[in-house]
Design a protein around this nucleic acid. Structure first.
Lengths: 87, 87, 87, 87
DNA sequence: AAGGAGCCGTTGCGCC
DNA sequence: GGCGCAACGGCTCCTT
């Protein structure tokens, strides 16, 4: 009944998605390997993950957010006000 | 400097959120317990989870979605066309 | 103090991860485009997503899961018992 | 066939889960309201969310993690080395 | 109406 | 091998 009405088109779409998914999975595997290597070398992978995400945002934006957060921490009396401090 | 300008208000907000988060965590714990019990009783928790989510949506809506999916499966020749079939 | 003790090694790790992340993001963008195209062509992208995920698992496994779910639906009296029906 | 073999037990499980889910949804709604109020009062909800999550972990643990992160930032030359420090 | 952000549920990973 | 946690992907709502 609803035979080849758009079957080829649909099939093409599905296959392209699946192909791309495979590529993506490959990359993810590579990333995992790098983390593995890092761990073997004695690095803290959790910190590395954070570092990577930190580098995604420009410093300015990050500082802006930090500023607001600090003002709130301050309002709650949670901010250490000694020399070189942060959260 | 930016001392108690809105500290009390902010503090109240934070504390209410934290209180609610605790309640929420409690409920989540309860849910987890029920699943645990179900598992101990021999039930397949994955199926139960699916069942619960199934019941969230009215049958009509679900059938609509199934219909579309079936037409696509059909277009790809993946649909079993015998008597009482489903995916 | 903890100057260039492993800085180069760390730097290399970070940069490789970032490079891979970029590649990954590129692929994700491509996938998004395909879905966009599918949508423009009148396809239901939600159904396509489900279809893609369906194809990941072998039929046998899927049928097993369906069977369990059906038995639960049945136990709750939620299963349509007419000819070729499912939820 | 598989009539009331465990139907009551299963039914009880499902219903308890659904009841708890409702309670949880209620709490979530309450939380959302508080954030809404905060926003109306001029607070940055994103910062509040971060603040709430910050308070979940004890200071010591957090500082430990910060320390490692800083050493990595330092290794990459990304750390501001002036007086009052932050990320 | 489209894009982005937050939330939720799922999956995979590491730990015990 | 099971458990708990963290990352990922999908969904929904809200903003622009």
């Amino acid at each position: 009944m609803s035979d080849t009405f758009g079957a080829d088109r649909l099939k093409s779409i599905i296959e392209r998605i699946e192909r791309l998914n495979e590529e993506k999975a490959g990359i993810q595997g590579d990333i995992k390997e790098v983390y593995s290597e890092a761990k073997s070398a004695g690095y803290d992978t959790k910190a590395i993950r954070k570092l990577v995400s930190l580098r995604k945002k420009p410093a300015s934006e990050r500082q802006e957010e930090e500023g607001i957060l600090d003002s709130y921490l301050n309002a709650l009396g949670m901010l250490n006000t000694n020399g070189a401090e942060n959260v």
